[in-house]
C-alpha cells in the first residue's frame, strides 16, 4: 500500500554544508581581514606574521594542519552545496551531473589540501 521510500543521503552533504557555514561565519571575516588586509597593509600585526617560515611552521604543526584542512575543505563543501541548490533554483535540474560536478570539486579540493598538508611534512 505505502510506496517504499528511499532514504535521502542529503544529511552527509547538509552536515558538511552546516559545518562549513558555521565555520565561515565564525572565522571567515577575520581570516579575510588578517590575510587580505592586515598583513599586506602592515596593520596591527607584526610584518613577518605570514612569512614563509611562519606559515610553514604552522602547516607542519598537527593543530595547524587540522585548522587549514577544516577551513579549506569545509568552506568548499559549503560552497558546493550552495551552488548545487542555487542551480536547481535557477532551473538547472541536472541531478546527478550537477551533484557530481559540485560535490566532486569539493572532494578534489579536500584531497589536494590533505595531500599538500601531508607533503609539507611534520
Amino acid at each position: 500500500m505505502k510506496p517504499t521510500l528511499k532514504r535521502s543521503n542529503a544529511p552527509i552533504f547538509w552536515a558538511l554544508f552546516g559545518a562549513g557555514g558555521m565555520l565561515s561565519a565564525l572565522i571567515g571575516p577575520m581570516l579575510v581581514f588578517i590575510t587580505g588586509l592586515a598583513v599586506p597593509l602592515g596593520l596591527l600585526l607584526p610584518a613577518d606574521t605570514m612569512s614563509y617560515a611562519h606559515v610553514l611552521a604552522f602547516a607542519r604543526n598537527w593543530a595547524g594542519k587540522a585548522f587549514i584542512l577544516a577551513v579549506i575543505a569545509l568552506f568548499l563543501w559549503h560552497a558546493a552545496h550552495r551552488i548545487f541548490h542555487s542551480l536547481h533554483d535557477v532551473g538547472v535540474h541536472a541531478g546527478t551531473g550537477a551533484k557530481l560536478v559540485c560535490y566532486g570539486l569539493a572532494l578534489v579540493g579536500t584531497v589536494i589540501a590533505a595531500w599538500a598538508l601531508l607533503a609539507v611534512g611534520f
Binding site: 521510500l5 528511499k6 532514504r7 535521502s8 542529503a10 544529511p11 547538509w14 541548490h85 533554483d89
Partner: peptide
Amino acid sequence: MELVNSEDGVFNCT
C-alpha cells in the same frame, strides 16, 4: 521519520 528522511522529505527545503 521514514518520510522525513526520504528523498521527498525535509532536505528538499532550502
